[in-house]
């Protein structure tokens, strides 16, 4: 099956260019960085020479939910950057180098081509993100208190959807422009712009994908899935589908050589 051939090639490529090593490592690092530094802050301060004896430091008591949000906070900024960087050349780079001239004169379906690229990036993103959150979950249970595995799965599901949207945005820009750097820039700019629009029009954009992490916090504290989270998840899913088909459409319109 052609789709499988394309998908397999992406997997092998990402293994050989060690994306399957560095992306998970960076994600794990991002996930455990804040929980660990916050937990060990007193020791870190001591090691750095300590504070004057009469200083009183009141360190907040973190709940497991707060710590999850620390990890997600890192993914919202640095994680987006990592995804934008790892996916920026996935199609545009092939067009820029000219290798797509060889591939796309073969009877390759554009739908297969785009969705195989998307799926390979989605898989890498989800695996790396899950590994990161598993590491974070491990330290949460060890250092901050119990968080159920069910809750972790819910976080993975909903936040994973948000990350897939970023992958889809990047794929879309990949079909639109030919310069990998520009793809990364446009992806990050779009995510930031969406955040800005969501903040400004917060009263009408309750189901904006950018609010998923806010609702996840609600979910963790109340223990039940807020209806707004379901709404935002559905909107995100629709946007992903729309972006994938939009990518196929723009790619079909494009001339493959220049």
């Amino acid at each position: 099956m052609q789709w499988w051939t394309l998908f397999q090639k992406e997997l092998i490529e990402n293994v050989r260019n060690v994306k399957w090593v560095w992306v998970p490592l960076v994600m794990i690092l991002l996930a455990v960085m804040d929980p660990l530094t916050n937990y060990y802050l007193p020791q870190i301060i001591d090691a750095a020479g300590g504070m004057p004896d009469d200083t009183e430091i009141q360190l907040p008591e973190y709940q497991p939910a707060d710590v999850v949000m620390m990890s997600l906070g890192q993914f919202s900024s640095m994680g987006v950057l990592v995804i934008a960087l790892m996916s920026m050349g996935v199609i545009s780079g092939e067009r820029k180098s000219g290798v797509s001239e060889l591939i796309l004169v073969k009877p390759v379906s554009y739908l297969n081509y785009i969705t195989a690229k998307w799926a390979s990036l989605a898989l890498l993103t989800l695996v790396a993100f899950s590994l990161g959150m598993l590491a974070s979950w491990y330290y949460i249970n060890l250092l901050f208190g119990a968080l159920s595995f069910g809750a972790l799965l819910q976080v993975l599901l909903f936040y994973g959807l948000w990350l897939l949207l970023i992958v889809s945005i990047s794929i879309f820009y990949n079909t639109l422009v030919k310069t990998p750097g520009l793809v990364a820039f446009l992806t990050i700019a779009t995510v930031m712009l969406m955040g800005l629009v969501t903040t400004i029009f917060s009263h009408i954009l309750e189901w904006s994908p950018n609010r998923i992490s806010t609702y996840i916090q609600q979910m963790l504290t109340t223990g039940s899935v807020p209806s707004d989270l379901t709404g935002a998840a559905i909107v995100t899913l629709m946007m992903i589908v729309f972006l994938i088909f939009g990518s196929v459409y723009t790619f079909r319109k494009k001339e493959l050589a220049s």
């Binding site: 490529e13 050989r16 000219g98 290798v99 004169v105 073969k106 009877p107």
Partner: peptide, 18 residues
């Protein structure tokens, strides 16, 4: 789709180097 009936070699073919 005529692509199955044609073969094409560009002037400067680029491959997947890996």
């Amino acid at each position: 789709d005529i692509r199955n009936s044609i073969g094409y070699l560009p002037q400067h073919p680029v491959f997947f180097k890996w």
